[in-house]
Write a protein that binds this DNA or RNA. Structure first.
Lengths: 215, 215
DNA sequence: GATTGACACGAACATGTGTTCGCAACTATA
DNA sequence: TATAGTTGCGAACACATGTTCGTGTCAATC
């Protein structure tokens, strides 16, 4: 499948990429012909078929603009949009809007490719972290945390918990030990916290972290 | 611009969205007609023009599949694909392939929406972090770091530096102080390292961090 | 030189596809 | 009821577009 492309074929392939990105639709045979100063549509047709054989693209017969790149820069339907619904800070509970399913209510979103993050299912949302209350979970001010909404937690999961006694929401590893709960910071240099089972309330489970470094 | 859509117009709009996502090209008038059991192409044409007036989409006259959604779920060209070119671990220098511009050589990629990360320009790549040598920069094992390739650094930037004496590449904040360099961990609880200016080599600048939490 | 294969050329052909037009059905308003 | 505006219908038209075919060029091979 790693056959060499002729100069013309490489040019055509590149043009298809750019055109599709620019116009959000594939080019026609004649659009390729004119843009690349090719003498005949049949030449384009020939090279398109070559590109099909070499696995670079697919064609739908008798359909206008029936060109489809085999490896799109990033297939649209293979991506996940997660809304950033608010911020999380020490001392404040997480507020999750009722309706997460309506994209039109979303502000900022995070785009994640499943190849990187294996995120599935419902209840996904994101929060912007305020303050340094979670450095022990390797999370800094300004980070965006990806969460899945849930009320319970398995042992060992990192969850956002509301600690009644301290009026604080933090991210900790969760371990049920008899009647109490051990909340273990992700940072190994920090000591765990022990709380009564009914004094904590699981808000959601940590799925990922995204950080932009100021530039 | 917030005019009400008729039932038929809403249906057509929805179909266009789904079709475009499915086939990575907009539908033709007749494809819409057949799929939605509409009696005539002129009806489709009429409603398409209505949708244009209501600001939902644009049309290119006399061009096949000349339909373009005004609010794409996520504009393709408004997104950045960054290749994950390898791993970074304590004791190993960063190896960046020569040609970053050819998408065909990419394996995994990271998708970033500019609204979240303000990343521009060339030389962007990503690395998977191995080991816990960078917990002081709030970076854990398995994280993906976004880097921009560069050989110099401004004061205060977080950069990947190769420390000759320790045969190690780490991420630290960079400060030039006379003939030597102060390398400050991002974690405030850690002490800085001082090295001779010509004993360090800047590999790239940290632009962002992405972490998936095991689930 | 003859043969073969890859690639290019130009001209048609067949049909996919946007557009137009006259007319009818259905509202809402006076 | 009358009138105007919106929407739906069917058919035809014009051209945009994928496809095919015969021919030509060039380099490699025998």
């Amino acid at each position: 499948m790693k056959t060499t492309l002729s100069a013309r074929q490489a040019t055509i392939l590149k043009y298809i990429r750019e055109f599709t990105l620019e116009n959000s639709r594939p080019p026609t045979v004649r659009e390729i012909q004119n843009a690349l100063q090719i003498s005949s549509t049949s030449v384009v047709d020939y090279n398109l078929n070559q590109l099909v054989e070499k696995g670079e693209l697919r064609r739908s017969r008798n359909i206008s603009r029936g060109i489809e790149l085999t490896e799109m820069p990033a297939p649209k339907d293979d991506r996940l949009s997660i809304p950033i619904v608010g911020t999380i800070a020490a001392g404040a509970p997480i507020e999750v809007p009722d309706d997460l399913s309506d994209p039109r209510s979303w502000g900022d979103t995070v785009e994640v490719s499943p190849s990187l993050m294996n995120l599935r299912g419902e209840g996904l949302f994101a929060l912007r972290v305020k303050g340094y209350s979670m450095v022990d979970a390797l999370i800094a001010d300004g980070d965006v945390v990806l969460m899945r909404s849930q009320k319970t937690a398995e042992n060992g999961e990192t969850v956002a918990v509301w600690i009644e006694g301290e009026k604080t929401t933090t991210l900790k590893k969760f371990y049920r030990e008899g009647t109490r709960v051990r909340l273990q910071p992700a940072n190994v240099t920090m000591a765990p916290i022990y709380v009564d089972s009914d004094a904590v309330q699981v808000q959601g489970k940590l799925m990922g972290v995204i950080r932009q470094v100021a530039h």
